[in-house]
Design a protein around this nucleic acid. Sequence first.
DNA 1: ATGCCTACCTGGGAGC
DNA 2: TGCTCCCAGGTAGGCA
Length: 309
Amino acid sequence: MPELPEVETVRDGLARHVLGTVVESVDVRRDYSVRRHAGGPMDFAAQLTGQTLSEAARRGKYLWLTLDGTDDALLGHLGMSGQLLVRTGAGLDVISPHLRVRIGLRSPDGDAMALDFVDQRTFGHLSVCELVPTPDGLPGGAGSQRAALPGAAAHIARDLLDPALAQGTPGRAGLVDAVRRRRTGIKRALLDQSVVSGIGNIYADEALWRAAMHYARPTAALTRAQVAQVLLAAEQVMREALAQGGTSFDALYVNVNGASGYFDRSLNAYGQEGQPCPRCGTPIRRDEFMNRSAFSCPTCQRRPRTPSR
DNA sequence: ATGCCTACCTGGGAGC
DNA sequence: TGCTCCCAGGTAGGCA
C-alpha cells in the first residue's frame, strides 16, 4: 500500500506530467471517493473545473495540486489502494474497473489528458481544500519554517525526507524528543502521523527490523541514540524504496497495488512470517497488533520485559 | 491532553 | 465450478 516513497513517486510523476494543465471536466463515478469536501461531489467538480494545476506538493502521505491563482488545492490521499494515473492518447480509452474519479485535462499544447483516481478499496479520497499557513510543523517547536498546508492535512507532522528534519538539524533532535515524550510503544509512535508522517505498517516493520528493535519497546525508556537509530533506519528504508520506485511513473503508471516495485525484492520482515530472518535465520514471527500485523524476528528484536502495547 | 480502539470499505484469494 | 469468508490497513472520531 502506498506509504511515503510511493506517494512521493506519484507526486513527482504529477509534477512532471500535469502541471500547467487545465481542468476541463470532472467525472465522479463514486461519491464516497470525494470525502471531507464540504460541498460534496457536485461542488468538488464545480470548484475544479476551469482551474489550472500549478504545483505538486506532499506532506507525509497526503499530496495536493495547487490551483493557480487561488488559495485552494486538489488534495488527495491514496489510502491503501489508491492510484493517480495520467492518461493520454489511446490511454484515455482505458477505464479501470476501479476508476472512482476522472479529471479531464487540457495540456498547454492543447492535448486531451486525464488524471484518473483509481482505488479498489476506497480508503483513499479526493477533495478541494483551502491552503492555510501553519505556525510551525516542527516537533519540539524548533525553527520558524512555516508552511502552507491544506487545512485537512494541517495536523500531519513533517516526514523523514523533509529537509527540515534532516539529521543534525534542530528539527531532527526535536523529533527524537517528541518520540521519547510519548507514553506508548515505538511502533505506535512511528505510525502516528502527528509525530512523524509517511510511515505505515510496512516501513514501520522494516525500520524496526533494521534497527533490531522490538515494536513494543516503550518510547519513554529508549535513549536518544536508540530513537535516532530507528528514525535513521526508517529514513534509509524509505529512501531505498524511493530509489527503486522512482522510475515507475515514467510509463504514466504505478503498479497495480500502488507499490513501487520495492516490495517484491527487499522486504526483510513485513509479510515474511515463517521465512528465515535474513540476519540470523530465525523464522520471522507475526503478531496481532492494533488489529493488524507486526512482523519481527524473535531473535534480533527481543520483546521487552515490560512491553508497551 | 493523551493514548487507544473501532468503523469505514472492497474484492482477491483461500478454503470447502 | 461456485460459493462463503477472511484479510489487508490509513484515518477520523470518539471514548476513557
